[in-house]
Computed example of a mutant assay.
Amino acid sequence: MTATPEELLYTPSHEWIRDNGDGTVTMGITDHAQDQLGDVVFVELPEADQSFAKGDELAVVESVKSASDIYSPISGTVQSVNEALEDAPETVNEHCYGDGWMVRIKLDNPDELSELLSAERYQELVADEA
């Protein structure tokens, strides 16, 4: 079983969300997702101040195996992006829940967080995929 921090929220499409408690969230991809992708070689992130609806394509992660779209699990506006990933995309593999974060988003609708999965539910989903 891959690492699944209890304090985070998750999506069925393998993104994680950290509620920063100030109307913003930090987002990245899960350990399971980075493991499935393999060695990440490029991350295309959105621009700051760009707005997204829930379900919109937010980013693209390219690995030696494939390219995968990353979707916004919530509606909001990008406050900042992890520019360090431009020069070190492998950070997504090495520290997906830490330095490998992708974007910080100001929430349009905080109620959308209640629609995300707990760590326990996410682990069940991943186990069912195996």
Rank of each mutant, 00 (worst) to 15 (best):
L9E: 06
T77S: 12
P110D: 07
S68R: 01
R121E: 15
D128Y: 12
A3C: 05
D111T: 05
T77N: 06
H14Q: 10
V126K: 08
S68I: 01
E57Q: 14
E120W: 08
A88M: 06
E15N: 08
D49A: 15
D35H: 13
P46A: 13
S80V: 10
T77D: 10
K54Q: 14
D39G: 14
V61S: 07
L125D: 15
S51E: 13
C96G: 03
G76D: 07
M1E: 12
E86I: 12
L58Q: 04
A33T: 07
L125M: 14
D39E: 15
D108R: 02
E115D: 15
L45V: 04
P110A: 08
S75C: 04
A127L: 14
M102K: 00
N93W: 00
V92N: 01
A119N: 10
A84N: 02
V78N: 02
A48P: 11
A53H: 09
N93Q: 05
V41S: 10
Q50C: 10
S13M: 09
P46H: 09
V61G: 05
D56G: 09
L107K: 03
A59V: 07
V41D: 07
A3W: 08
Y97Q: 06
L117N: 11
S118K: 12
E90D: 12
A59G: 13
P110S: 08
E83G: 08
Q50T: 15
Y71S: 08
V103D: 00
D99F: 03
W101D: 01
I105H: 04
A59E: 05
D87N: 10
V81P: 05
A119Q: 13
H95R: 08
H32P: 02
S63T: 04
I105P: 00
D128N: 14
P46K: 09
D99E: 14
G100Y: 00
K106W: 01
M1N: 09
A53V: 02
A88I: 01
L107V: 03
H95W: 04
Y71M: 07
L58E: 04
K54T: 13
V43P: 01
S75E: 10
V60M: 04
V64E: 09
E7C: 09
D56Y: 04
I70K: 03
L125V: 15
S118D: 11
M27K: 00
G55T: 07
I29E: 04
M1S: 13
L9W: 06
A119D: 08
L113D: 10
V92F: 01
S114I: 05
D69K: 11
A88D: 01
S72K: 04
V40C: 06
E86R: 09
T26P: 01
S13Q: 14
H32C: 08
Q79F: 07
A127D: 15
I17Q: 03
Q34K: 12
V78A: 10
V60S: 02
E112T: 07
K106Y: 00
S66M: 14
L85Q: 00
R104S: 00
E83V: 10
T24S: 15
